[in-house]
Design a protein around this nucleic acid. Sequence first.
DNA 1: ACGGGCCCCTGTTGGC
DNA 2: TGCCAACAGGGGCCCG
Length: 307
Amino acid sequence: VPELPEVEVVRRGLEGHVVGRTIAVVEVCHPRAVRRHVAGEADFVARLVGAELPTVHRRGKYLWLPLVVPGPRAGDAQEADEALVGHLGMSGQLLVCEPGVADHTHLRVRIGFTDGGPELRFVDQRTFGGLFVEPLVPGDPPVPRSLTHIARDVLDPLFDDAAFHAALRVRRTGLKSALLDQSLISGVGNIYADEALWRAKLHYARPTGTLRRPDTDRLLAAVREVMTAALALGGTSFDSLYVNVNGQSGYFDRSLRAYGRAGQPCERCGTTIRREPFANRSSYFCPRCQRSASARYVTATRPGEIH
DNA sequence: ACGGGCCCCTGTTGGC
DNA sequence: TGCCAACAGGGGCCCG
């Protein structure tokens, strides 16, 4: 459930079903799912068992739940100094389901609670995602250590539009590469990058150094609009891999204007949407609406035609 | 230091 | 029908 809207849907689900509860048991079913927990599987489990989960945070595509361990005397309030961190990768799901429900084929981690209620299950077909426990680094809010290089996302009120524009100006790369760079702006993946670029009428290969402030403002507005609209529809789901904590799909796939629409007419101008290879994936765009890559740059990116 | 390329996995799909 | 290459929403690491 990869991009920001889908991860936010999951965060809200965790807020409703997991926050306030205390972990009783943890079962790691596949070691690769906890590979980012360097101290190992047993340490991962030990740090979780007995911890209470007061809140759930998200930055970009990462989720984390601060862990509060009960103090020596009952009722002692403790500050969380570490957190359970999760990334869904390409195919990860966090599902809330009754303890009796049959294990999913790709169940990787099971977390049970002291109240005996629904479990939290991490299910991940491709195992690009994972869970790990890490110390929190002080900040607003405190962030797990390995997330300190992740930029704030566009729905974060503290995202700095001017700083983002300045960063684009000094980069020497294409616009979509910059959008996908989680250290510049987080939460944007392949789908919403293409959708935002279509909305802002910008070419994916436009050199970032050529952007003027109004271009950046239009782009950021488009990213915010498309993500907000997707969130309202529960995110984008093409199949059962991308679901909320209750296993339900979102409906934003019907609202996509560029992604996956190769060969179909642009809804703005009727020109056929084109698909081009991009970084081992694909870029979808309207060749008429999104013509802003300079001719020199486009030429230079074609193998064997560098002038 | 920074950008692009490659790899980590499993499953589905479409062409021959 | 079968086989196999291409492709899939991500990111970390290595290399130049």
